[in-house]
Nucleic acid binder design. Structure first.
Length: 493
RNA sequence: GCGGUUGUGGUCCAGCCUGGUUAGGACUCAAGCUUCCCAAGCUUGAUGCCCGGGUUCGAAUCCCGGCAACCGCACCA
């Protein structure tokens, strides 16, 4: 099981990730990706795009700004629902959410109360601090969104976006036309989102600036299922680890077993499973799809499953992605606020499409890969999917003499033209293998005395440390087929 | 945001209580030697007291403030 401190240390030491603005003491909730982390993240994002855009004929990437004007987030509900009134106890100093206090203690809904109303209510009803019974102070607004002023005199209010999704929803109508009215269609985006968390914790798990990869699928419920029926059938009996709301224990269930959920939603649950199982290569006892209860899920979500990963470094099951059936909430909100039509004509009627959102925290997924992949013992190494490792192959001379150094450099140049390759001549051969183990490089090529005779090299695979000997002329092709999993690396000796 | 603990080369730690030579070790890194395959060895070298203020002849060490990290609480539509 990955130890948080050891993994943090490795990430810093080798160049994956570490707290941002470090030389000035840092600022909680911000992380930098170093040269290896950046490669890993880029590769993960590429893999994500390849997989999820591949799910639909009409699925595409878009990019939208980090800054959104006030009205957008007002319409989406974020201005109301993303800000809370906090009340601090004058005696013990603990902060509480004013609306929760009123609801929990008096049993009255505090929905829509502003800070003045909450303060007055608390005073009138003589609500005390639930922790120490001390007197409570005035309510103060706390908004999770970073606000900013747009324009030279700051005359217009805006926010750093708290999620990437709104930029996508706003482009629904334009892309619907540009994509020539195909339905269902999908818009994906990858980018930064910002939340002014009260207490960022646990490394990249809760950040103030983080990356999201999201796919919004627009569809009209009665009209979508036909085109996905076949793809669903291929998935329908595969058992996947599921924890349903209200259940104590997770179970292996097939999509067919989840027959209270719409088929289109189940199909995407299946695809989320495939991504974690086949692409991220997580073992099935390390991740699950957990359904959120009515109390846990946001009001606009009709169905909500999270993907959770069992991460030792973070103390157990942690959310890394979500599958949200948001109904027509988002498009209806924007239609009403903007006055722009968000409906599509179907059989002579106009319907506002529904949205299924596949939402991934990029940083959390990167951490999950490192956490689950980090293996310590006789040998410390990271077990990463070979196609997203920062480097796919490293090249070494067995020794720095008799021409091996020069030949290894030539072979490095050869491989670096089509892979992310690394060349290392310093230290002993064992040290060099160890360095690559620690950053998850799946293959290491070594030039030895035989290489100089017959133009072969050894190639070593990270998980087994087994080696085979290949002709240099076959090296590119063989490596290519290992990385693309067309061929299994196998030591025949 | 509250409470507790902590902050020393790239990493991990000793030194702090009881202020005083050149801040020590392990690993790492670099250059070289050696080495016929998994962190070996030898030589040489590089890098550090979180930031700011105070006390003092003198601060890594004591005091105050800030920042950050860890644990717990709260928060996480």
């Amino acid at each position: 099981m990955a130890d948080k401190e050891e993994l943090d240390s490795l990430c810093k030491r080798r160049g994956f990730l570490w707290p941002s603005s470090e030389i000035y003491g840092g600022e909680a909730g911000f992380y930098d990706y170093g040269h290896l982390g950046a490669r890993l993240r880029d590769n993960w994002e590429r893999m994500w795009k390849d997989f999820f855009l591949g799910l639909g004929e009409h699925y595409h990437m878009i990019y939208t700004p980090n800054i959104l004007p006030y009205r957008v987030l007002e319409s989406s509900g974020h201005v109301d629902h993303f800000s809370d009134v906090l009340v601090q106890c004058k005696r013990c100093g603990n902060s509480h959410r004013g609306d929760h206090l009123i609801e929990d203690i008096i049993g009255v809904s505090a929905e829509g109360m502003n800070k003045g109303e909450i303060s007055t209510f608390i005073l009138e009803k003589e609500i005390d601090c639930p922790d120490c019974q001390g007197d409570l102070g005035e309510g103060e607004d706390f908004n999770m969104m970073f606000d900013l002023d747009i324009g030279p005199k700051g005359e217009r209010k805006g926010f750093l976006r708290p999620e990437t999704a709104q930029g996508t929803y706003m482009n629904f109508a334009r892309e619907y036309r540009a994509l020539r009215r195909k339905m269902p269609f999908g818009l994906a985006t990858i980018g930064s989102a910002f939340r002014n968390e009260i207490s960022p914790r646990q490394g990249v798990y809760r950040l103030r600036e983080f990356r999201q990869a999201e796919l919004q699928i627009f569809f009209v419920p009665e009209y979508n299922q036909g085109s996905f029926a076949e793809a669903y059938e291929n998935l329908s009996t595969k058992k996947i680890p599921v924890l349903r709301a209200g259940c104590e224990e997770q179970k292996k269930m097939s999509l067919d077993d989840l027959d209270d959920l719409p088929k289109f939603y189940r199909y995407h649950l299946g695809k989320m499973f495939e991504f974690y199982s086949h692409k991220m290569e997580l073992s099935e006892d390390k991740f699950r799809l957990r359904e959120l209860s009515e109390e846990e899920k946001a009001f606009y979500n009709r169905i909500h499953f999270d993907v959770e990963v069992d991460m030792g470094s973070l103390g157990g099951w942690k959310e890394v992605a979500g599958l949200h059936y948001r109904g027509d909430y988002d498009l209806t909100q924007h239609q009403e606020s903007s006055g722009q039509k968000m409906s599509v004509p179907i059989d002579g009627e106009r319907k506002v499409p529904h949205v299924i959102e596949l939402s991934f925290g990029v940083d959390r997924n990167i951490w999950a890969l490192l956490d689950l992949g980090y293996i310590t013992g006789d040998r410390d190494w990271i077990d990463l999917p070979v196609d997203i490792a920062p480097y796919q192959v490293a090249v070494f001379p067995l020794m720095r003499k008799d021409g091996m150094l020069e030949r290894s450099r030539e072979i490095y140049d050869l491989l670096n033209s089509c892979f992310n390759a690394f060349w290392d001549k310093s230290g002993s051969i064992g040290k060099r293998y160890a360095r690559q183990d620690e950053i998850g490089t799946p293959y290491c090529v070594t030039v030895d005395y035989d290489s100089l005779e017959d133009d072969t090299v050894t190639i070593r695979e990270i998980s087994s440390t087994d080696q085979i000997r290949l002709k240099v002329s076959d090296l590119k092709q063989e490596l290519w087929s290992y990385i693309n999993k067309e061929k299994v690396f196998k030591n025949n000796n």
